[in-house]
């Protein structure tokens, strides 16, 4: 664990391979639809099984099988309404149908898979998490049957808000957390297609070592710069680039965005042992201040040149 953990809904997990990686936690807005889907599935399953049992009893012999069918209905209702989540989560690796539909999964707080006992505890304690109940009869004053008592889930919500891993009471007691199941994800690599970038990168002094934090900053910048307008890019990059321009002894009219990108190219993409890139039409230009001085001596400045003045 790093000493400073980001203020985020990710949680680091250390695997048996001794690797720490991040899980994204699932909040109430992903978990409630999953719960509602599960509720629907549960009732659908009960209705289907009861109707099926009834028809089988009717087909064979209702006289002798009738009582068994009724007992079977009671038992079906009992088992499905109390143990649906427990069985599903144990057999399907921490997912019920609703969780599968919403792309979330239950795991142990240590990142290990859930086991039967934990699933039992967390699914039973959902009743407490759905407290307190709100009955519409209180407000409308009518004879609404108690079936329409609506759980508000405030206990669970408060517990989720006040714990680091967004756990409700059932999760706390069972030692589990709900994470977002990672789907397939594209590997992003920023490609450099600007010919000026390798050219400018070749002028960065070889003795300049890029620190880790600098490398990270460069990578973030290269990933995000597509979303910014050129003016905004320059504004963002300037803070970092102005001291560097002095250090590299570059001309001060260099585009900060371009230099930032060139640094990125040099850090991540360029072959360190490679010779100078093919400069093409840019051959002969230099961003260096000293060459500008020479040019000024020769009184041959040119404002139209893309990077900087002529070298020789």
């Amino acid at each position: 664990m790093p000493s400073h953990s980001p203020l985020d809904t990710t949680i680091a997990v250390v695997t048996p391979e001794n690797i720490a990686f991040d899980y994204q936690l699932a909040g109430p807005f992903r978990r409630m639809p999953a719960y509602l889907i599960d509720l629907l599935v549960r009732w659908a399953a009960i209705v289907i099984l009861v109707v099926l049992a009834f028809f089988i009893g009717l087909l064979i012999n209702i006289q002798t099988l009738g009582p068994f069918v009724i007992a079977g209905m009671f038992l079906t209702y009992f088992v499905i309404s109390w143990f649906y989540g427990t069985v599903m989560e144990t057999f399907f690796n921490g997912r019920t149908i609703g969780k599968w539909a919403c792309g979330i999964r239950v795991i142990d707080v240590d990142g290990r898979p859930i086991n039967g006992r934990r699933a039992f505890v967390r699914n039973l304690l959902r009743i407490v998490d759905l407290f307190p109940m709100a009955a519409p009869g209180i407000f409308v004053d009518s004879d609404i049957p108690p079936v329409f008592i609506i759980p508000t889930g405030l206990v669970g919500l408060i517990a989720m808000m006040s714990t680091k891993r967004l756990q409700r009471l059932g999760d706390l007691a069972a030692g589990t957390m709900v994470i977002i199941d990672q789907r397939s994800w594209r590997l992003p690599v920023a490609k450099v297609d600007d010919a000026r970038v390798p050219a400018l990168a070749s002028f960065i002094p070889a003795d300049y070592r890029i620190s880790r934090s600098m490398a990270r900053t460069l990578a973030v910048y290269a990933e995000r710069r597509h979303y910014l307008t050129p003016a905004r890019r320059r504004e963002v990059a300037r803070h970092l680039i102005i001291p560097l321009i002095d250090r590299f002894e570059f001309r001060s009219d260099i585009d900060p965005d371009l230099l930032m990108y060139a640094l990125y190219y040099k850090t991540f993409l360029a072959e360190s042992s490679a010779e100078l890139p093919d400069l093409g039409s840019l051959a002969g230009y230099s961003p260096l201040r000293s060459s500008v001085a020479e040019v000024m001596v020769d009184e041959a400045t040119d404002a139209e040149i893309p990077i900087a003045g002529v070298v020789e």
Binding site: T15, N115, W185, P188, A222, E223
Partner: peptide, 24 residues
Amino acid sequence: PPATVTYLHRLIARSHNQLYRANR
């Protein structure tokens, strides 16, 4: 780059969930 690291985190999280499965 950070994006690659994020990618690796997610890839490993996915495989971890498949490798270590719940006991029946």
